[in-house]
């Protein structure tokens, strides 16, 4: 009586997975051929790689003065661009907040922010280098633009999320626009602003060690010329310094965030 019937396999192999795997494999092969990547070239490179590592270690700190100069310039760029960029972002963010401003103000401001965001800092840096020449100024301007692109947007979003009751309460007292911003808007978003600002300082510090590669001042320039002169042990010294300064920056910004919590 017991008819042993087999239940159908509940996992019909969906073709989507198989197709996905085939597409990725085919893409890898196509891209490898198209770009002339080959195992032989890769292996040859590995040989160079070990030679390079040989020359990179031990790191060479004998030209520490050069290193220090670059480092100081990087930090100057990071600090100035963060302060100026964040300061400008306060206003630009306010102008871009749709609950505080009419559309004819907020929309164009948003376009400006979007433009600042869309390009990689390095591309902005080369444009500034062409416009204002080599050196720290180009780096400064680049990172100000990058800060605005990133942080003005976050500021605007934070302002748009505030509770409007407090704004109305202060407005009801007949306060001016400035007082409304100072006493109703700012207290609500202050700690988040600090968080964003610290993040931006971190990110500007990272980027200030990089824009020098295209001539915009700072440690990146030192790094790039070390590469061009094949001073690989000096390269290692610079890289270690960069990593150390970034870790230090992360540590300090964490502390500041704690203080303003």
């Amino acid at each position: 009586m017991a008819v042993v019937k087999d239940y159908p396999n509940p996992f019909e192999r969906s073709p989507a997975n198989t197709i996905g795997v085939i597409v990725i494999a085919a893409y890898l092969i196509y891209a490898a051929i198209d770009m002339d990547l080959s195992l032989a070239r890769f292996l040859e490179g590995l040989g160079h790689g070990s030679a390079l590592l040989d020359r990179m270690f031990p790191p060479n700190f004998t030209r520490w003065e050069l290193l220090l100069d670059g480092l100081i310039e990087s930090m100057q760029i990071a600090i100035i661009s963060s302060v100026v960029g964040i300061f400008m972002s306060l206003f630009i963010g306010l102008f871009a907040a749709r609950n505080m401003m009419p559309a004819w103000v907020s929309s164009p401001t948003r376009v400006i922010i979007a433009l600042c965001r869309s390009f990689h800092p390095v591309i902005i840096a080369i444009l500034f280098v062409k416009a204002v020449g080599f050196g720290a100024l180009a780096g400064l301007l680049t990172l100000i633009v990058a800060s605005i692109g990133f942080i003005a947007k976050l500021f605007a979003e934070a302002i748009e999320e505030i509770s409007f009751k407090q704004v109305e309460a202060i407005r009801a007292t007949g306060a001016s626009f400035t007082s409304i911003v100072l006493f109703a808007v700012l207290p609500q978003v202050f700690s988040r602003f600090i968080g964003f600002s610290m993040y931006q300082l971190d990110s500007n510090l990272r980027n200030s060690t990089m824009v020098g590669i295209v001539g915009a001042g700072g440690l990146g320039g030192t790094l790039f010329s070390a590469f061009q002169r094949f001073d690989y042990d000096f390269v290692t010294a610079i890289l270690l310094t960069i990593i150390a300064i970034i870790l230090l920056g992360e540590f300090l910004s964490g502390k500041v965030r704690e203080i303003f919590q």
Partner: peptide, 9 residues
Amino acid sequence: SVNSLVWAL
């Protein structure tokens, strides 16, 4: 910690 441009170098 190492930027992609530095990795590229």
